[in-house]
């Protein structure tokens, strides 16, 4: 190898400027160790750069000395207490305790390649901090997951309840509508009240018919009727000039006095009667089974 040429190549300058890859830098160091002229040139280059750096020397502002020195003391204190004078490996290349700034080497590598206890400890602390953060995060995840599950269950329950309420409200509204209608009938002056009283077969029986001759509507309201035997059903009759006209069957709920029931429209009537017939009704009333009867006043 031509030493002169090597010196002239500018490689030593790039080394001193930390522009070489680790492999190239190691090559320069090896050659410098082997060839005194290269070593002398390298040191001369380094001194020249040192001179240039020094030309920029500048007294730091007042107070900086105290701040930096005490900051330094603080920074090294935990380490020196924990590991007093632990020798670090002296294997790093001389010129660059950090990797050279060559090509696209990221800035971070420079810091990490330093075999410094401070850097190692910093990493340890970072690792510990990261582990703690991970554990906290796992704990939080578990907590949030179980809360989420809980919320999910509560939501399902709430939705079921809400459906129940909705159904109940519908039922109530329906009943309210019925009651409102009934109240309307009772307050309507066009309706005629026909009180039906029990026959000798059912002396305690009582029922009423509300009849509107104008609209022809008929409602029945049971106060008390003997329970219908199975297979039997009460039937309402309108008597028009003595002739019975079918006014419809009483529903089970009506028979027990739950509410008013609208019956078939009746064109004209002077009296009403209820007989106990076979379920589904009969074209003509069975007079023997007459339960209640009343005249329109």
């Amino acid at each position: 190898m031509n030493i002169e040429e090597y010196i002239e190549s500018g490689q030593l300058e790039l080394y001193a400027l930390q522009q070489l890859s680790p492999a190239e830098a190691a090559e320069v160091e090896r050659l410098a160790a082997e060839h005194p002229p290269i070593r002398a040139e390298l040191i001369s280059v380094q001194r020249a750069l040192g001179l240039y750096a020094e030309a920029h020397a500048l007294t730091p502002p007042a107070g900086l000395r105290e701040r930096v020195l005490s900051g330094f003391q603080q920074a090294i204190q935990p380490q020196s207490a924990a590991e007093p004078a632990t020798p670090t490996e002296p294997a790093a290349p001389y010129i660059a305790p950090a990797a050279p700034h060559y090509e696209a080497a990221p800035a971070e590598t420079v810091v990490r390649t330093l075999p410094a206890a401070e850097a190692g400890s910093g990493f340890r602390w970072l690792a510990i901090a990261a582990s703690v953060a991970l554990l906290l995060s796992l704990g939080a995840n578990w907590l949030f997951y179980s809360r989420w599950q809980q919320s999910e269950n509560q939501l399902v329950l709430a939705q079921a309840k809400e459906q129940l309420y909705a159904a109940a409200t519908q039922a109530v509204e329906k009943r309210l509508a019925t009651r409102t209608e009934e109240l309307g009938i009772l307050r309507d002056e066009q309706f005629r009240m026909v009180v039906m009283t029990g026959t000798p077969q059912a002396p305690g029986a009582r029922a009423r018919v509300m009849y509107n001759p104008v609209s022809r509507r008929v409602y029945v309201d049971v106060k008390n009727l003997p329970a219908a035997p199975s297979g039997k059903q009460y039937q309402l009759w309108a008597l028009d000039k003595g002739k019975p006209v079918d006014a419809g069957m009483l529903a089970q709920t009506t028979a027990v006095g739950d509410s008013l029931q609208r019956m078939k429209d009746v064109a004209s009537a002077q009296a009403f009667a209820v007989t106990l017939e076979d379920a589904g009704g009969h074209p003509t009333p069975t007079m023997a089974a007459l339960t209640v009867m009343g005249q329109m006043l």
């Binding site: 160091e29 410098a32 390298l42 040191i43 380094q46 001194r47 040192g50 930096v68 020195l69 330094f72 920074a75 090294i76 380490q79 020798p87 670090t88 490996e89 002296p90 294997a91 790093a92 001389y94 010129i95 305790p97 330093l114 075999p115 410094a116 206890a117 401070e118 850097a119």
Partner: peptide, 18 residues
């Protein structure tokens, strides 16, 4: 830099330069 120099001082090789 002071902290870094302190902790990595073992990697300084005086035979290689000032």
């Amino acid at each position: 830099a002071m902290v870094k120099i302190w902790h990595s001082f073992q990697s300084y090789d005086a035979s290689k330069g000032r």
